[in-house]
Design a protein around this nucleic acid. Structure first.
Length: 271
DNA sequence: AGAGGTACCTGGCAGC
DNA sequence: TGCTGCCAGGTACCTC
């Protein structure tokens, strides 16, 4: 489920409950996540304080006293603050315990998520080292995408979903941003003009910001057993709308597969 | 180096 | 009511 806005919303939801808190224990019910949790991870974390939590791309970074916890939600992961001792359910694989009435519970049915402890700065970690700029930061602008795309024949949708180019643009928001900027998802990245990349960056920022703002309305859901994390109000204009009317021209939205991923577009409005 | 395919895993749904 | 096959919002890793 999580794309960048969901990860950002998760960060904002859990931060006030955990910042400054000391980890008392780690409860691991299933260590087989994307990479198996090492046996000693609990004793590494125990006693360390969460000094801050930040986000880089779709990774959450827990800054501890002597290291960092790198957490990725994968396709189906979610985090919740448990304050009432609610029993774990089937896919609740890990609890980070902060006290008798406070723990962070990691749920992930598909187990594509990851939890990594490192004593080196996360930016130097293999997973984060090669990543491109944040889409909401100044470094990513039309000029940047334009220059990185020259001579590339790859479909522009795959190009903007490549984390080495720009991070955090997942399958849904790639379709949405291309629709809003009028660019056909299959167009070769290297053949798109600078002004069109400027429009694309503006559209990427717009959809991500709007979704983060919508996610903000469900922050309270990060606490309590009835938490509905993962369900956010989204105003999707093309994604999942195959056969429905384009909101701009009334024509039928179509679906394509690009790099094995469903891609939605309007053949009339996107060139 | 760039581009594409495969793999990881469970659950939900359509179709028979 | 099964069963089967397909699909799902991510990304590391492999090959060409």
């Amino acid at each position: 489920m999580p794309e960048l806005p969901e990860v950002e919303t998760t960060l904002r939801g859990i931060h006030p409950h955990l910042a400054g808190r000391r980890i008392q224990a780690l409860v691991v019910r299933n260590r087989d996540l994307r990479w198996p949790l090492p046996k000693g991870i609990g004793s590494s974390l125990r006693g360390q304080t969460v000094n801050n939590i930040t986000r880089r791309a779709k990774y959450l970074l827990f800054e501890l006293d002597r290291g960092w916890l790198i957490l990725h939600l994968g396709m189906s992961g979610s985090l919740r603050i448990i304050q009432n001792g609610a029993s774990p359910e089937k896919h609740d694989h890990v609890d980070i315990v902060f006290g008798p009435d406070r723990l962070l519970r990691f749920r992930d049915p598909r187990r594509f998520g990851a939890l990594i402890y490192t004593t080196r700065p996360p930016a130097e970690h293999k997973l984060l080292r090669e990543m491109g700029p944040e889409p909401l930061g100044d470094e990513c602008d039309g000029e940047y995408l334009f220059s990185r795309s020259r001579n590339r024949k790859q479909a522009v949708k795959s190009f903007i979903m490549d984390q080495r180019i720009v991070v955090g643009v997942g399958n849904i928001y790639a379709s949405e941003a291309l629709y809003r900027s009028g660019i056909h998802p299959q167009r070769a990245a290297g053949k798109i003009s600078l002004p069109r990349y400027e429009a694309l960056v503006a559209a990427i920022r717009q959809v991500l910001r709007a979704s983060i703002a919508a996610g903000g309305t469900t922050l309270r859901d990060f606490v309590g057993e009835s938490g509905q994390t993962g369900y956010y109000i989204r105003k999707l204009q093309v994604y999942g709308r195959e056969g429905d009317a384009c909101l701009k021209c009334g024509g039928a939205i179509r679906q394509l597969r690009i790099g094995q991923r469903a891609s939605y577009y309007c053949p009339r409005c996107q060139r």
